[in-house]
Nucleic acid binder design. Structure first.
Lengths: 152, 152
DNA sequence: CGCATTCACTTAACATGTTAAGTATTTCGC
DNA sequence: GCGAAATACTTAACATGTTAAGTGAATGCG
């Protein structure tokens, strides 16, 4: 069996960790986790979204998102109101406080990202992103844990 | 601020998830999590290791490893004995049962890896791994959350 | 209409990630 | 040798990942 420390999953894990190590301290200073930050960023780009759509955008599973939204709402960083047309749906948006918090974190975050880009090289970075996207595409068709399939 | 869904951390996260999605169902059938599997694989390559070294190899934080080792030991998949020279250290090794379990999982796991390689292309895969390693290197010097530094 | 099915979440339960604190052992300096 | 500091874990506490089950609201269909 191949040396697992050289396997693709490990390479991806280590690379991502190397990147996130740079951001976490700054986020932490502002009382945010990586996932909470992802949600705020996703919300900043739009007026309001449904929870399910937000889960897709922020790449979080429903249960994680449910918990985090509960906490972010308690901290008044986001707002929620149920859709009138469909009482099941809930529309989420970032609050003024949330926007303010983002503004205070963004500069450092941008600087870190710029430094990473500078170190690794902008061209190589773009290339890497392309390959990662291609990898994702390659496996998208393959699925992995679908439902509504023809199996069984 | 740049569209965060195209940021490096998100690209890495999505790519890794796309890969792990392929493996998880098979591991699950054998009652193993991704992390438990990593530990068994790391142990399979050697006689015995200290916990700290294992944490480095399997890329797990100490507390996670502590818990998982406790559980794997209870399931008799690993064995532990304190080093005679240094009572603080504990030497971990895989058990016969552990080896047997690995043997039952490995074929499927190998097949999945082969399929991923086939889909994405062996050459591209090697190239991607190189880039991921390079990225890691770029950021290694930068650190991120070190101690014993000259800051403060 | 009536009711089974689907849908959009939320809760629950257990495993891991992450940081801080705790414990026992060893090493170092004097 | 002895006490402070370092080392190798382990525990604790809280946040998220992951799967399964639960809840209330909408839909589809006979």
């Amino acid at each position: 069996m191949r040396d697992f420390s050289r396997s693709l999953p490990m390479s991806l894990l280590r690379a991502r960790e190397a990147v996130m190590r740079q951001f976490r301290p700054s986020l932490r200073e502002h009382g945010l986790t990586e996932q909470q930050w992802r949600i705020l960023r996703a919300l900043a780009a739009i007026e309001a979204v449904e929870v399910t759509e937000l889960a897709r955008t922020a790449f979080l599973l429903g249960p994680s998102l449910s918990r985090i939204l509960r906490d972010l709402e308690a901290r008044h960083l986001i707002e929620r109101k149920t859709a009138k047309a469909d009482q099941r749906r809930s529309m989420v948006s970032i609050s003024k406080e949330g926007v303010k918090l983002m503004a205070s974190v963004a500069p450092t975050s941008e600087a870190i990202y710029a430094e990473i880009t500078r170190r690794f090289g902008a061209r190589k970075l773009a290339e890497l992103q392309d390959m990662l996207g291609a990898l994702e595409q390659s496996l998208a068709e393959l699925g992995g844990a679908e439902e509504a399939s023809s199996e069984e």
